[in-house]
Design a protein around this nucleic acid. Structure first.
Lengths: 193, 193, 193, 193
DNA sequence: AATGAATGAGCCTTCATTCAT
DNA sequence: GATGAATGAAGGCTCATTCAT
């Protein structure tokens, strides 16, 4: 039974453990137990506990950011961009909930380091620019406070890590659609006429 | 729970320290330094570190819940109830950001104990019922998924603890208004007539 | 309701608490709770925790020693002196079990200080001398090892603090009689004639 | 319970330290110093301080109990059983004084847990049954109170931990013989003829 | 005499990290 | 790559003691 490097096992175990106990509350021994090795052995894979945190968190953070960057270069209407952002964000949560939970719980908005602060801010800015485009193109309400709209959308999406139960991509897409509807059209019934 | 001379100082210091370093990352020595006493002396006020966490968090959690309960008995229209919830929620964040941050970061949705799980769920339910009322009364879109609407509103509000800078009640009210507008009417420009 | 000094309450409470939890395992707060005051208040009565230990233990230790000294000056036969020693020792245990327990558990043979070592040794010596008298007068077996006899008698008596349930003086006297019988005549049945 | 390289050193050191300072009075740092490691390192061997106490104490407690059980199945005369019990008990004290001291000081008759209470009681009962056999077979005095006899014998033996200086097995055997003689024949000189 | 609060030292325990094997 | 052991630095908590009121 060939057993290649267990790097992925290690990171996945860390994601599960950190997401359940928190980064501070989890010990490397917890992680090692989850992989099935001793805590000392982890140091064949990492240089420090923080290393592991970043390894858990980086791929999805980068994927999300990349998607947002790509979307920006598109010439979809703003409303469609909102829908796309929600969709991608929700899908990543559905596929990688433990990893994303750790990011949101331990890194987002914590000012851990310049690098992460920058990523946070860039994503935030990209989303805000979508709303800005919508206002400037006249398709969004000119009274819209884009700063608040963007932060609220991201907040609503991130908060999903506290209640969403992953495993059903169709449901994930439905949630993304509903959330987009709310942010685009609101809860109020449209007066027909 | 004794309330001698410096009880409030102790809790306020704990709120600040926990909110900055996290409950797990903060040591009781940090808290004691912030109050200006030695860590051993804290035990004249508390029985354990967890005690302090709950003391930090309980008053505002209860206030918010009480407001939501009171609102329920009201016969305001659903849209107005949404506005009220957002307003109260934002105002508590504005007035007690460190306390609320700790609640959201350390307790909300963590299943710490039955008591807190119940509080969480009750608040959630109360908000969801507002949206349900709106749908049933015909003032909200019949296609609205109330479960997602409620969770998204709460998520957007709670996420404020990561970016809001407190101290300006007028701005707090403005944010509440904007957020309510988005959740009620959406970002899209209304086609007049 | 005139309430004189509560010195005796304090010492009695300490005896109970020390005897149950051990001197090291009991906190002054435990003692204070047992008396119904706060731990700080104890320092109106004592200068240190050790003070309290000695106060608990001294009166009975001195009484026992005095009785043994008095007995020595008597000209009772050795066998009667053995009976008397057992009787007094058992009676003190019956009347003051908690106090005596503390002495035996925390002080006897621990070399705490010269004073207590001396008391220990003197009592030991007095008992040994009784056996010596018996051997020299011919009434005790000349092969008797008085050192071992004395230590065993005292050991058997002191061990009572681990199993005796006080409150019945008659039973106490019966135990003393039985114990004396064993040490004087042994368990073996006497062949009559 | 792991038995790596220095497990025996750790337990032996703990026995020495606990026996000298008491379990409560000894710190794990004391134990660690005695082995030559840091207190934190002890936790590679134990899970708690209490673990260490039990590890110190269990082997000899079990050995003594096993001997008493084995003796019971024998068909030696009661008097010989008394001699055997005394012998084994004294020999264990001679060989493992620090370990046994800890047992007697910290566990015997303290009701620490059901397990230990049971061991205490079983040994007590086995000894009492020996005296009972003697009485029923007619070789012991029919007036003998077996309950008191057994408790006194055990008390006298256990008390040895307070005065015996180990290291001379021959002397240990002599003490056992003397003690047995006393409990069997008493101190009084036999009237010849 | 009693109280509430504070002190400071010490203790058990945890844990990230290192390292020889 | 893995392991068992050791390290050293905290951290939560206890407690004897002090002291102003």
């Amino acid at each position: 039974m060939p057993r290649p490097s267990r790097w992925d096992d290690v990171v996945a175990a860390a994601a599960r453990v950190f997401s359940e106990k928190g980064f501070g509350g989890a010990s490397l021994e917890d992680v090692a137990n989850e992989v099935g090795m001793l805590k000392g052995s982890l140091y064949n894979y990492i240089k420090s506990k923080e290393d592991l945190l970043f390894a858990v968190v980086r791929p999805d953070a980068e994927e999300l950011l990349t998607c947002a960057r790509d979307l920006k270069r598109t010439d979809l209407p703003a409303s469609e961009k909102v829908r796309q952002i929600a969709l991608v964000h929700v899908e990543i949560i559905d596929r990688h909930l433990p990893y994303v939970s750790v990011y949101i719980q331990e890194i987002a908005g914590k000012g851990i380091s310049q690098e992460w602060t920058d990523m946070d801010r860039e994503y935030m800015t990209l989303v805000e620019q979508v709303f800005l485009e919508g206002v400037e193109s006249g398709s969004f309400d000119p009274a819209l406070d884009t700063r608040i709209a963007a932060r609220s959308l991201i907040g609503a999406l991130n908060w999903m890590t506290r209640w969403y139960e992953p495993g059903d991509p169709a449901q994930a897409r439905a949630i993304a659609a509903q959330l987009s509807d709310i942010f685009l059209s609101g809860a109020l019934a449209r007066r027909r006429s």
